[in-house]
Simulated assay, not measured.
Amino acid sequence: MVDPQRQRIHPVEVEARPPHPTAPLVPPGSFRSEKGNPVQVHRHPPPPHAIPATIHSPPPKRSYFCKCICWTLTLLILILILLAASAGILYLIFKPKLPNYSVNSLRITDLRLNFDMSLYAKFDVKITADNPNKKIGIYYEKGGKLSVWYTKTMLCEGSLPQFYQGHQNRTVLNVALTGQVQGGSTLMAALQQQQQTGRVPLDLNIHAPVAIKLGRLKLRKVRVLGKCQLVVDSLSSNNLISIKASNCKFRMKL
């Protein structure tokens, strides 16, 4: 049995250990080379927060349509303004006036019933065409017509001659009119009954395609439309008929 007093405790040298490192010897992201030296890997910082690009959506088709309509209307208004201004300037310079027509005489050379009961009529009409314009000439083109009507029935028709009428000129025209109307027996009876009163109403219609000349410029063709309401005393053939009343109105149509 060992004497406790003799038991001795010999101190043991404890090898000092280096303190526990607080940071890794090799920084994160490094790796060792074959020689044991750490190689530093450079990491690029993360890109900043990307700002999304603004995407402009195309305007709706309706806006394009509205813009197109607005531009078209604006252009039309400008054109109308220019045309109105040009027409106003021309009017002030040339001061246009409608031509006048008057019936000088009316002669019935033939008015009879045929065997087929159609009514044949042949008239000779003398009219005066008056151009009152000082700076405008008138070209009477092909296709002009002169016709005589009783109520709503055309008795006869003839062609106007082609000619040029100068400034402030009066021209006398002799026009031969012929026509044939079916069912003439009823029409002839109405004319004879009207003739007994001494007042026979007739309408003289004028359709004249003309071209206006402004200085040296010849404009496009227009139409002069006229109507003369006549009252004659009789419808006797081969006699000069007396015109008791005459009322003429004219207008120009493009």
Rank of each mutant, 00 (worst) to 15 (best):
D124Y: 08
V175E: 04
T128G: 05
T128R: 11
K122E: 15
H167R: 12
A121Y: 10
Q168I: 03
L146I: 13
E141T: 15
Q192E: 13
K135H: 12
L146F: 12
P161T: 11
S159G: 07
Q196T: 12
T153N: 06
S185N: 07
K122P: 07
N131T: 11
Y120R: 15
G143M: 10
E157H: 01
A121V: 07
T197W: 00
G166I: 04
G144Y: 06
H167V: 07
T151R: 15
L155A: 06
F115Y: 10
N131E: 06
L113C: 09
Q182S: 15
L173Y: 09
Q168M: 08
T153C: 09
L119N: 08
L119E: 08
T171F: 01
T197H: 04
M117F: 14
V125A: 15
Q182A: 14
S185W: 01
T153A: 09
Q162Y: 07
G137C: 06
A121W: 06
K126L: 12
T197E: 01
M188E: 07
L146C: 08
N114I: 01
K122V: 15
F123Q: 05
L187C: 05
T186A: 13
W149E: 08
I136Q: 00
V172K: 13
V181S: 02
A129K: 09
L111E: 04
G137I: 00
I136M: 10
Y120P: 02
L160P: 02
P161W: 13
V181P: 01
G184R: 02
G143S: 12
T186Q: 10
Q180S: 14
S147H: 04
S185C: 00
P132K: 13
G179W: 04
S159Y: 15
Q165L: 07
M117K: 12
I127W: 00
Q180F: 01
F163R: 13
F115G: 07
Y139Q: 14
A189P: 00
N133S: 06
K145A: 15
L113W: 09
K145M: 15
M117P: 00
A189C: 00
Q168D: 07
Y164F: 05
Q192G: 00
S147Y: 08
G166R: 03
A121Q: 09
V148E: 08
N174I: 01
G184N: 05
I136N: 00
K134N: 11
Q196P: 00
S118P: 03
G144C: 10
D130E: 14
K135V: 09
Y164L: 09
L155G: 06
L119K: 05
S118K: 07
G184Y: 00
Q180R: 14
S159M: 12
V125D: 02
F115M: 12
F163A: 13
G143V: 08
F163W: 04
F163K: 13
Q180T: 03
N131V: 06
G158E: 04
I138T: 11
Y150P: 02
L119A: 11
Q194S: 13
Q196D: 08
